[in-house]
Design a protein around this nucleic acid. Structure first.
Lengths: 218, 218
DNA sequence: TAGATTGTTAATCGATTAACAATC
DNA sequence: TAGATTGTTAATCGATTAACAATC
């Protein structure tokens, strides 16, 4: 019987996949057809065994003694992440951060298209930001069902995050990419992915502290 | 002999600390003086044993049978993260994302103050964004040494990231919070913290795919 | 054949979870 | 005394690293 590769697995590996994908696309554009895990490892400054294990979870296979087909790796990573089909998303909260994300062209390369933005600020409503129209927040439920959108990027002020979140749930949004610092309460049928800048800052802070104390000990 | 708590440790725990800190500050403002790990756990929807272990790495201690002093926990978390003293930072690249980060008031509560921004865009230079002055990029080396700044937030376009990074290293910047998708090459005396949006998107994508396939199996 | 590199299994390491004695 | 909760040690789980046979 075929052994199934672990298709559920491994948060850390999943987080590393976009990095491989980006490099592989560059290789592909440069005309390279075959690549070894050692080559990718060198390029990205990651241990080679790590690369091999990460690629494994996508179900990609290579040829012993040769390497992987670049095209095949790209295909397997994209399929594994669901980035071969574009997913439409709404952006909720067209402030500074929201506008920054609307301007980020990279999303479309990662299977994500922001089709509309929503805000309560009258100065923004009716405008287009990076070709994305901004609608009043109360139109969201209606448009979500009409446009079959089930993914929302939440970039509103923390204070109204839970409030807006409940509107999203009512609009049958199933995935929320939460850029606010507010932990959202949602029913189990809705997924929240918390994007937490302060977590990154905490990590950096500790590393800097360590670096400084090490130096002082010299 | 005293046993030293593990002060180096545990990336995942470190990333969770800001969340505890935020809640504890709220409790403090509400006049609460004592809190148990179980209470924090309930509030934040985290397993109680997890809370206890996370707090342990900061060196905080409580009273058996009673709980922790809120003030003491805040103190220990802040000290552990180095957030009791404010660190000055430069923001490099005052585009959409850069402006969003300048506007994020939360940084100051996390020991971080952006004292100046840098860009090559003449339209931005000389302006103030959220009270932060924008200087030409070529002034960075000079100002960094004069203002004793060793931390930079990098929000330039990916294409010039490595280039700008090398200028930062020359300016004796020791920590770089990298918001570009470009993996930076730096000497070992410099710390880079990679803030990778596509990693978060990858995670969310996989979780949504799983949710959808589970539902289809019903 | 010799060298390279995957596929796969085993060993190590680190984080999470569980259990329980100590004590307020 | 009884209940609550920390401090601490042990058990489990998962991710990383190592080793090596298979094979192009």
């Amino acid at each position: 019987m075929d052994k199934q590769p672990n298709r559920t697995g491994k948060r850390p590996s999943i987080r590393r996949l976009p990095m491989y994908l980006k490099t592989l696309r560059q290789f592909h554009n440069a005309g390279r057809e075959i690549v070894s895990s050692a080559h990718l490892a060198r390029e990205l400054n990651v241990p080679q065994i790590n690369v091999k294990k990460d690629l494994e979870i996508t179900g990609a296979t290579g040829k012993t003694g040769v390497g992987y087909m670049v095209k095949s790796l790209i295909y397997h990573i994209e399929s594994f992440l669901g980035w071969n089909n574009t997913t439409d998303a709404f952006l909720v909260g067209a402030g500074n951060l929201g506008q920054a994300l609307m301007g980020y062209q990279g999303f479309q390369q990662h299977g994500l298209r922001i089709t509309a933005a929503f805000d309560t600020d009258i100065a923004l409503i009716g405008k287009q930001i990076d070709k994305i129209p901004v609608f009043p927040l109360n139109k969201l439920t209606n448009l979500a069902s009409r446009m079959h959108v089930h993914l929302a990027i939440l970039t509103v002020p923390a204070l109204c995050a839970q409030d807006v979140c409940e509107q999203l749930v009512k609009a049958d949004i199933r995935g929320i990419w939460n850029f606010t610092s507010e932990p959202l309460k949602v029913p189990p049928t809705v997924i929240v992915h918390q994007e937490d800048l302060t977590a990154g800052l905490a990590e950096l802070s500790v590393r800097i502290k360590q670096l400084l104390t090490e130096e002082n000990q010299l």
